[in-house]
Design a protein around this nucleic acid. Sequence first.
DNA 1: GCCAACGTTGGC
DNA 2: GCCAACGTTGGC
Length: 156
Amino acid sequence: MPKKYWLMKSEPNEFSFDDLKLEPDSRAHWDGVRNYQARNFMRNEMKKGDLVLFYHSNCDPPGVVGIAEVAKEAYPDHTAWDPKDKHFDPKTTKDNPVWFMVEVKWKKAFKRFVSLHELKETRELKDMKVVQRGQRLSVQPVTRKEFDKVCKMGSK
DNA sequence: GCCAACGTTGGC
DNA sequence: GCCAACGTTGGC
């Protein structure tokens, strides 16, 4: 099974790429996803070793800051069962978890931040979901070509 | 802070 | 099963 490529969004004031680096072993579970499409990508398709463009959203400016790697495949997101958690979902139980998360590991910071603005101006990246108007999916697949192109932009 | 776009909910 | 109302996302 060939490696897949992803883009994952995080709000840097909630959890930034640097925060990930500072976690023990530079890895963390990606809790709080409450969107079925994003869940399906994580639960059904993300494999250990897949590479992730780490994207900072809802900040100025938004864009890709570096690369992470899937360190553990999907398992139930326990924060959905915690009434005190921001992402508590009373519909879910341990027998019927509904929401899942993966673990990601910090891999490499870009030499240079690649802004959303730049992504939008790059012809080869015009089909990326993140540049589409109104696209809100927080976990999205990217093609290998797109992944490589963004990395290239971030490495010089 | 605004608001367009989107996903979800719930009445019918 | 439709769709209006609502809440959220996230760029600007």
